[in-house]
């Protein structure tokens, strides 16, 4: 099975897997995120168009909010 790593968790890779798909699979619903794929920053407007390949290392940094 081909996989990617998201915040050190192994996730099954899919065809045309873009950032929005990854966020959905991980149930990452928080909105204040910083996304990097193999160290490269992906801006919010690029989430849909950025497709990851097998073996990619994805970091989804959740910032802090609330009281």
């Amino acid at each position: 099975m081909k996989t990617i790593t998201v915040n050190e968790i192994s996730l099954k890779w899919e065809e045309n897997m873009n950032i929005n798909v990854i966020l959905k699979r991980m149930n990452y619903t928080f909105r204040m995120l910083v996304v990097k794929v193999d160290g490269k920053l992906i801006k919010k407007h690029e989430y849909e168009s950025t497709v990851v390949s097998p073996g990619s290392d994805v970091k989804v940094i959740h910032l802090i909010s609330g009281g």
Binding site: N7, E8, F30, V60, H62, I64, G66, G67
Partner: peptide, 16 residues
């Protein structure tokens, strides 16, 4: 009270 530190995402989710 969480007003000193709220580190859950940084620790548990981001693994930073």
């Amino acid at each position: 009270q969480h007003d000193e530190a709220w580190l859950i995402f940084m620790d548990m989710v981001n693994k930073q």
